[in-house]
């Protein structure tokens, strides 16, 4: 009885919060057929938003993958002063609202600040352009790869790595041939989470990008802007594409898992 009750509760919870809203979005998207959807997605503004999201997501996921693996190795394999502080800092983005992250970036790199002026003289602009959006996205995704990889590193231990080094492997060879295959599944999972989070980021991006239509507008900003301008077809269509991309990424991460690790 308890089991049935639990199952019903969990299913009802997920239905109300996840299944129902997504289903409604899908219904709104396709209720007058596929034609209007394709037309809505084919507008220059929509195409540009997808391009911006792709670029920002690519760099943010790349940066977080590299940083995530390095930070996980540092935290699990080494002892150093300040380790606990670093460990706590990595979780900070979960606690801080993305909007505040965006504001903080504006305060540091904005055009009226010292840093912003210095960078502007070098021809680099951070705020209201792609680099700032990448920074904001990187920040909100920081914990995802680290927290996926670190427990697996802990679990596999360092004996295989030590064995590789006694067999003549340098640290890069050991990482590529021994550590990386062992953490592959966890890494793929962390990357997919980071990817999904990057695609969907709104708050920090909204502050940092300046929402310049046709210049710094990502898909999430596009959805919101179209919705407010009563172009609901475009808003729903873009939202559906975002959801579908995230779901496909999750499915791929399941398939990528090597069989012997899944057992």
């Amino acid at each position: 009885m308890v089991k049935v009750g639990l199952r019903v509760t969990v299913l009802a919870y997920l239905t109300m919060l996840l299944v129902l809203p997504v289903a409604v979005v899908l219904w709104h998207t396709f209720h007058s057929g596929v034609g209007p959807v394709l037309r809505a997605l084919g507008t220059p503004a929509a195409a540009h938003a997808f391009q911006i999201t792709a670029v920002v997501t690519f760099y943010a996921v790349l940066a977080n993958t590299l940083f995530g693996v390095l930070a996980a190795i540092l935290l699990v394999r080494y002892r150093f002063p300040g380790k606990r502080v670093l460990n706590a800092l990595i979780d900070l983005p979960l606690a801080v609202s993305p909007v505040i992250v965006g504001l903080a970036l504006v305060l540091v790199y904005g055009r009226t600040t010292g840093t912003g002026k210095a960078l502007a003289q070098l021809g680099v602009s951070i705020i209201f352009s792609i680099p700032g959006m990448v920074l904001a996205t990187v920040f909100v995704c920081i914990p995802l790869v680290v927290r996926a990889v670190a427990p697996v590193l802990e679990e596999i231990g360092d004996e295989q790595e030590q064995a590789a080094s006694t067999l003549g492997a340098g640290s890069w060879q050991t990482f590529r041939r021994i550590t990386l295959p062992a953490i592959r599944g966890a890494l793929a999972y962390g990357v997919v989470l980071a990817l999904a989070r990057s695609l969907g980021e709104y708050g920090a991006i909204a502050v940092v990008s300046g929402r310049l239509v046709g210049r710094t507008q990502t898909v999430t900003l596009f959805v919101q802007e179209r919705y407010q301008n009563f172009d609901q077809q475009a808003a729903y269509a873009a939202a559906t594409v975002l959801v579908a991309t995230a779901v496909i990424a999750l499915l791929i991460s399941r398939l990528l898992r090597p069989k012997e690790l899944a057992r």
Partner: peptide
């Protein structure tokens, strides 16, 4: 370790 030319066998095998 990688330059010492030693073979090392671990208690828990350390199999790849």
């Amino acid at each position: 370790a990688q330059e010492r030319g030693v073979g090392f066998v671990f208690q828990h095998y350390a199999a790849f």
